[in-house]
Design a protein around this nucleic acid. Structure first.
Lengths: 386, 386
DNA sequence: ATGAAAGCGCTAACAG
DNA sequence: CTGTTAGCGCTTTCAT
C-alpha cells in the first residue's frame, strides 16, 4: 500500500502546544511538528524559499526545489493551515449549514455541494442547526472567518440578519429567497402545474394540501403554486395543517383528510406523504383507490429505493444540482476583483415523477358516486376520526 | 426582536482580505472588521488589556473592563478565531468524520457528539467521507490543526495510520477498536445472545447471517457474537454475503436466503433487513410466517417511526450515548497535564428490541414439516431465483 | 493593573 | 533566484 519513497498518509511527527516550545529541549508531551523554519534550516535555505517551493508552482530553481521537497517529506512537514490562513485570509474551506442532517432532502444538497467544493479546491465542513435559529447563528458566529464562505440551506435566520451577514462574508442561500443575497431556489411552479393537471385528468375534483411548518418558505411557495394551478385547472383546493413534516405527522394529516372526504392530497414533503400512506393502509383504505397521494422531494431516489408501496408520486427537486449551484454561486462571489456582475440568483426547476400513489378516484369510476359498501366503510372510518 | 442596546446577531462590520488593508483608505469591497487594536485605541488602552478584559475573567479593574466591553460592542468587534488559535494552538472546535451522512445509524452519534461538544464549549464540524478511505484521509489532513481533535466514526483507515495519527493529534474512535487508540465501541454480545435465544425459543433450528461490507469491523463483531451464541444454543448458523448494507442490498440477500431454505435471518443492519422485508413481501411471502428477520441499529427509533410492517426486531445501539462518550473521551485526552491515566476504552451495551418481524416458523407449526401448499409456493419462488 | 514587546507559522513585498 | 523584513490578529510573558 505504501511504495517506498512514497509519502505516508500521515507524518510520523507529533506536535505540542505551540506556546510551550521555544526552549531547545523538546517540550514534554511528544515531538513538535516541524515548521517551515525547520525545513529551511535542514535544507540550508530561507523560510521564504521553502514557502515558495511549496506553494508557488513555477518559481525557483528545480534543483533547490527538489531538495526542499525531499527534506520536507523526510521531516514530515505539513504547513499549518491556520498560520497559512491568517495572513491571506483564505482558508480554502466553506461551511454548509443545514437545519436537519436527518432529513433526506438535504442529503443530495450536501453531497452536491461537497463534491463541487472539492472539485474546486475547497474542503467543506457541515453543521447541523437542528431546526434552531439560535444554533444556526451560533454556528455561523463560530465559523465566521474560519471559513471562506457559507452555504445556508433552508436558513431559519431573519431576512435582516442574512442581509447583514452577506456584507461581511461570502454567503449563498439554498431554498430561501432574500433580495440582495445570492441564492439558489427550487422552482416548483411548472412541476406543480403538471401534478395538478395529472390529478385533474384522473378525475379528481378537488385537492387538499397538507401544509408543512408555518415558518417554511418552501411551504408558502408550494401552496401558492398549487392554488394557482388549481384555479387555472378549475378544480378545488384547500389547505390543512400545519403538520409536522415527518412520517409521524402523517397520522393527523391522513385523519383530517379523510374527515374532509378528500380523494387526493398533496403533502408538503415525502416524509409526510409516507406517513399519510401508512395511516391510510393502517385504516384499511387503499391507495390510490380511496386516496391519491403526492409528495415533494423524491427522497426515495436518494435513499436508493422506492420504499413505499405503492411507490410515491412526487415532485422531485434537483437537490444535488442545487448544492453544486450554491457552491458555484458562492465561489463566484468570492472572486477576487471585478465580480460586481456576478449572478445573484439561480432557479432550478423540479420535475414531476408519476408513480403508483396517484390514480383514478374510486368514486369517479362508479359514475361519480360511491358504492354502498365503500360508503359504509368510509363512513365508519370518518366518524371514528371526528 | 432586537431590544435597543442589545447586540445584534451579527455586527454591522464587514471585512476585506487582510493583506489589502494597511493603507489608510478603506480597501475596496467593504469596511474592514475591527481588530483588537481598533478597540484598544478607541478605549484608550493597550491591545493586551483588551485581550485580558475579553478572555481572562477575573483580572483587570472592573471599570476599564466595562469600558472596553462597551467599546467592543459598539464597534462590533469579534475576535478572529484564526488569530486566536495560532498562538494558543486551541480552536475550540472538534471534527466528526462519518463514512456516510445518509446512514441513519450515524444520526444519533452525530447528535450525541455535537450536543456534548457544545455543552463543553466546543463547536463541532462534520465531514462525510462517503465510504472512501482516501476522502477520509483528505478530510483529516485538511482539518488537522484547524481543530483540536477528531472523532472518527467507523473509520475506514488502516490501524497503522490511526495509531500514527493519534500521536500527533487528539483522536477518538467510535465503532472501531484499535489498541492504543482511545475508542468507544458498541458491545453487541449480550444483545446478540438474547436474539439467538429468542429465535431458538421460537423454534428456529438455524439462522442465516446476512453479512455487511467485508472491511467492516462491526460486521466481524456481529458475526462472531452470532456464531458463538448459536453454538452455545446448539442451533445452526451460516453466513451469506457480503451484501450492500442498504435497502437495495436486501433483494439479493432475500433471494439467497430463500434459496437456502432459511426460516430466520439476521441482517448486518436495519437497512439491509428492510430490503429483505420488502423483497419477501414482493415475492408474496410473509414475515414472520415464512421468514423471521432481525436487524441491527434500530434506525426506526431515530427516524421517529416504525416504518416497516411488521415492525422490525432489531439489536439497538446506544448511538447518542456513543457520540457523547466519544467527545468526553476526546476531551479527556486533550486535557492539559497529567492525563496519563485517562480512560482509553468505553464499551456500551446494545439492547434487543423484539417486535413483529420475528415469530414461530410456519414449518415448525406443522410438525416440523412444510404444508404441501407452502412447499409448492416456496419451491416456485426458490426455483425462480436460481 | 496595565503597557510594551515578542512571537505563533506562514506569506508577500522588496532587495540583492 | 533567493534572502531579509514585515506583518496577519491575537495572547502572553515581563516590566513598570
Amino acid at each position: 500500500m505504501n511504495d517506498p519513497g512514497t509519502e505516508r498518509l500521515f507524518s510520523k511527527n507529533g506536535r505540542v502546544r505551540a506556546s510551550t516550545r521555544r526552549a531547545s529541549l523538546p517540550a514534554g508531551g511528544g515531538p513538535a511538528s516541524p515548521t517551515i523554519h525547520d525545513v529551511a534550516r535542514e535544507a540550508g535555505v530561507a523560510a521564504s524559499t521553502v514557502s515558495r517551493a511549496l506553494s508557488v508552482p513555477g518559481r525557483g530553481s528545480a534543483e533547490t526545489r527538489q531538495r526542499i521537497l525531499s527534506v520536507a517529506q523526510r521531516l514530515g512537514y505539513r504547513p499549518n493551515p491556520l498560520a497559512r490562513a491568517l495572513p491571506s485570509g483564505r482558508t480554502a474551506t466553506i461551511a454548509l449549514i443545514v437545519p436537519d442532517i436527518t432529513n433526506p432532502f438535504f442529503f443530495g444538497v450536501i453531497r452536491g455541494a461537497e463534491r463541487q467544493g472539492r472539485r474546486r479546491g475547497f474542503a467543506t465542513v457541515l453543521a447541523d442547526s437542528e431546526e434552531s435559529t439560535e444554533l444556526e447563528a451560533l454556528h455561523i458566529e463560530h465559523l465566521d472567518r474560519a471559513v471562506d464562505g457559507f452555504v445556508l440551506v433552508s436558513s431559519r435566520l431573519p431576512d435582516q440578519d442574512l442581509r447583514q451577514l452577506t456584507k461581511s462574508i461570502a454567503l449563498t442561500l439554498v431554498n430561501r429567497v432574500v433580495p440582495g443575497v445570492p441564492h439558489v431556489f427550487i422552482d416548483n411552479r411548472d412541476a406543480v402545474r403538471q401534478a395538478v393537471e395529472h390529478l385533474a385528468s384522473l378525475g379528481h375534483l378537488s385537492i387538499i394540501y397538507l401544509a408543512g411548518p408555518r415558518a417554511s418558505w418552501s411551504d408558502r411557495q408550494r401552496w401558492l403554486a398549487l392554488r394557482r394551478s388549481a384555479e387555472k385547472c378549475g378544480i378545488g383546493i384547500r389547505r390543512l395543517g400545519p403538520f409536522s413534516p415527518e412520517i409521524g405527522g402523517g397520522t393527523a394529516a391522513a385523519d383530517a383528510s379523510i374527515a374532509l372526504g378528500a380523494t387526493a392530497v398533496v403533502a408538503f414533503n415525502d416524509l409526510l406523504a409516507i406517513g399519510v400512506l401508512h395511516r391510510l393502509l393502517e385504516l384499511g383504505l387503499t391507495v390510490p383507490g380511496d386516496m391519491s397521494v403526492v409528495g415533494f422531494d423524491d427522497i426515495g431516489k436518494i435513499t436508493g429505493t422506492e420504499f413505499t408501496s405503492p411507490p410515491l408520486t412526487t415532485v422531485a427537486a434537483p437537490v444535488e444540482e442545487a448544492g453544486r449551484a450554491a457552491v458555484n454561486l458562492l465561489l463566484s462571489h468570492m472572486g477576487e476583483d471585478g465580480a460586481e456582475q456576478a449572478v445573484k440568483e439561480v432557479g432550478l426547476p423540479s420535475e414531476l415523477h408519476i408513480r403508483g400513489s396517484t390514480g383514478t378516484p374510486r368514486a369517479a369510476r362508479v359514475t361519480g358516486g360511491v358504492s354502498p359498501r365503500r360508503a359504509a366503510k368510509l363512513h365508519r372510518v370518518r366518524s371514528r376520526q371526528s
